[in-house]
Nucleic acid binder design. Structure first.
Length: 246
DNA sequence: GCGACAG
DNA sequence: ATCTTGTCGC
């Protein structure tokens, strides 16, 4: 691998815009060598949701993380950053389009969350390096993915009741789960990103699910970045009225 | 060659 | 992802 690309693997390089898909693939393969899917053992006090929002046909991206108390799942703080990207959306390479902006929002957090849930996949990916895994290896954070649609693998439809799930397999290995987070509603796809096991991601996703299809972390993240884009929220780091109680 | 294809 | 109104079902 060229030295320039190797630097990009180990350094939070904020500009993936000039990469070719072939180079991006090399970076994913390199990052994969640093993946850790060992069980997560420490206690969880906070969990954040990460997401971005964009206007159609615009290179401007509104990224953000919303930190929730755990297990209460109440928003206690959030970080919003306006950035830009020209890297196109290519299935399998979402990380290169969204991570630079999310990384800025993450660095803006004075206290990092125990876990980060992404709107996208962890190892439920052709090269086991979805956006959650990519961000995890890059920063060392504990991450997991929650996607609304299947990206890779095969699975049998899980039961129709909330809490039921089915493994998603690819090339003989389980890479995630199709989870029914709400009865009679399409399942979401859960997978570990980094520093946690498949079982950890499944258990956490269910513990973060209330009455909606999307687990609270990603649901709030999606809502906040959207309100940011439409002007209802401002850029920067903020704490909610529940911060002190927490 | 054909089908699949996170956001 | 985003653009959009009504409408069907639990």
């Amino acid at each position: 691998m060229p030295d320039s690309l190797n630097r990009m693997v180990i350094t939070p390089e904020l500009n993936y815009d000039q990469l070719t898909i072939a180079e991006a693939t090399l970076i994913q393969q390199q990052l994969h060598g640093h993946l850790n899917l060992e069980p997560f053992q420490k206690d969880i006090t906070t969990i954040a949701g990460a997401d971005i929002s964009l206007a159609l046909y615009s290179e401007t991206v509104y990224a953000g993380l919303v930190v929730l108390s755990y297990p209460e799942l109440q928003p206690i703080a959030y970080s919003l950053v306006k950035s830009s990207t020209i890297f196109p959306y290519v299935p399998g390479y979402l990380a290169f389009r969204e991570i630079p902006a999310i990384l800025k929002a993450y660095e803006q957090l004075p206290v990092k969350p125990d876990v980060i849930m992404f709107d996208g996949n962890g190892i439920l990916h052709a090269r086991r390096m979805g956006i959650a895994s990519h961000f995890g290896v890059l920063t060392g954070a504990v991450t997991m993915g929650c996607a609304k649609k299947k990206l890779a693998g095969k699975y049998d439809e899980p039961g129709t009741f909330k809490g039921e799930y089915a493994p998603v397999t690819d090339k003989g290995e389980v890479i995630g789960y199709a989870v029914r987070t709400k009865s009679n509603v399409k399942p979401v796809f859960i997978s570990p990103g980094h520093q946690m096991s498949l079982e950890d991601s499944l258990a956490l996703a269910l513990k973060c699910t209330r009455m909606h299809r999307l687990p609270e972390p990603t649901r709030y993240a999606h809502e906040y970045v959207n309100r940011f884009r439409t002007g209802a929220l401002t850029e920067g780091y903020h704490q909610t009225d529940r911060w002190t109680l927490f």
